[in-house]
């Protein structure tokens, strides 16, 4: 049999390309699904914590409004905290434009501002801890000192540009 080698190579390439195209379309679906699962979880984790600080601050602001107090150290902390949280992205900033935002630094600032607010209010830092403070501790006179060792340090901040460095290794096609 005679082979035109050139043609055979072309035929191989055609088959390969056909398969590649189908595979790519299938892989795309898997990439989106797996990425989405990771993004949902990470977005939840980050914004659950930020939302806590935000809701805590907003509620104490409403309490101060109710008391008719406008100028206070606590109010100052609340304003700073709300400013910082407003800077935090609700979408992954790497998606649109390269960002100068230092996410871990912003997170640190938000956490320490929340702690400062709690100290000023004379309230224990409860994020990431047992929700119901024992009455003995919460009935103390303000300001109650903080427990710096226990404040949410276990949470690791994730870098937005690199959601899943290990995703490539876990694939099982």
């Amino acid at each position: 049999m005679d082979f035109d080698l050139e043609e055979l190579v072309n035929v191989e390439e055609t088959f390969y390309n056909e398969g590649y195209k189908d595979g790519f379309a299938h892989g795309r679906i898997h990439g989106l699904i797996e990425g989405r699962a990771l993004g949902r979880e990470k977005g939840f984790e980050m914004w659950e914590e930020l939302g806590f600080y935000e809701g805590f601050a907003a509620t104490w602001k409403a309490i101060y409004d109710k008391r008719g107090i406008e100028d206070d150290r606590a109010i100052n902390h609340i304003k700073h905290l709300q400013d910082l949280i407003a800077q935090f992205p609700k979408a992954n900033p790497s998606a649109s434009e390269p960002s100068e935002l230092d996410i871990p630094k912003l997170f640190r600032q938000i956490r320490s501002r929340h702690k400062a607010l709690c100290a000023t209010l004379g309230v224990r830092v409860t994020y990431g801890m047992e929700p119901a403070a024992p009455p003995s501790a919460s009935d103390d006179d303000p300001p109650v000192s903080l427990e710096p060792g226990k404040s949410g340090g276990k949470k690791k901040v994730w870098t937005l540009d690199n959601p899943s460095p290990s995703a490539g290794e876990k694939m099982s096609f």
């Binding site: 398969g19 590649y20 195209k21 189908d22 595979g23 790519f24 379309a25 299938h26 892989g27 795309r28 679906i29 898997h30 990439g31 989106l32 699904i33 797996e34 990425g35 989405r36 699962a37 990771l38 993004g39 949902r40 979880e41 990470k42 977005g43 939840f44 984790e45 980050m46 914004w47 659950e48 914590e49 930020l50 939302g51 609700k90 979408a91 992954n92 790497s94 998606a95 959601p163 899943s164 995703a167 490539g168 694939m171 096609f173």
Partner: peptide, 26 residues
Amino acid sequence: GITAGKESHLQQGFDEGFAQTGAPLG
């Protein structure tokens, strides 16, 4: 193809999940 298709769309999926579901729900 499946590897290339997957790797090139992980980020898009991540961003969707983060912005559309994870962040607002959290």
